[in-house]
């Protein structure tokens, strides 16, 4: 194949192009993270990094492994669907080191009121009371066992803690 006598500059240009492409590949090799494109147009290793973040709420399964007695009481009562840490707070630290991390006992005056304060905005079927009229400022656990809140339902301890007070709407 006879090329024109001036074709040399084309090959020099081609050479330049190839060198630039190689430089691009070398730079790309060092700049683009290894896992980029593993699953899509992103760094695949980011998924595992996010998955490796520490857990703060241990989950009720973890609590129930040790506190099965309380779990049995709770799961037999009206609060069966309320998980432990919804009231007791994040306790993964306690689960991994029960001896040195001692959870605080929640203040039932504040805690119960968060859900059970009467408001017309709440679903009508949800048990709610006007706190002041209902208890007159006494902590809820004076009469109710928070693990099984219906008075008289705490069969395990056998204690009917107090007489039913007036003012409850439910």
């Amino acid at each position: 194949m006879k090329l024109s006598k001036d074709s040399g500059h084309l090959f020099r240009f081609l050479g330049l192009f190839v060198i630039a492409f190689l430089i691009f590949l070398v730079v790309r090799h060092f700049v683009v993270p290894k896992s980029f494109g593993e699953y899509g147009h992103y760094r695949g290793a980011a998924i595992d990094e996010i998955a490796a973040l520490p857990v703060k709420f241990a989950g009720h399964q973890t609590c129930e492994a040790c506190h099965s007695d309380i779990a049995d009481t709770k799961n037999g009562g009206k609060h069966a669907h309320v998980n432990c840490e919804a009231c007791h707070g994040a306790l993964a630290d306690h689960a991994s080191d029960p001896a040195s991390v001692i959870p605080m006992l929640p203040d039932t005056t504040v805690l119960c009121a968060r859900c059970h304060t009467a408001s017309a905005a709440k679903p009508a079927g949800f048990p709610q009371v006007k706190i002041d009229e209902h208890s007159g400022g006494l902590p809820c656990k004076t009469c109710h066992n928070p693990h099984t809140p219906v008075i008289g339902s705490d069969k395990a301890s056998g204690a009917v803690l107090g007489a039913k007070t007036a003012g409850g709407t439910k």
């Binding site: 998924i47 996010i50 973040l53 520490p54 857990v55 009720h60 399964q61 309320v82 840490e85 919804a86």
Partner: peptide
């Protein structure tokens, strides 16, 4: 994601009373 990949549920679901 750090919880659901470990077999736990999300913090909001765990704590919804």
């Amino acid at each position: 994601y750090h919880r659901i990949t470990k077999g736990l549920t999300t913090a909001c679901v765990e704590n919804c009373p």
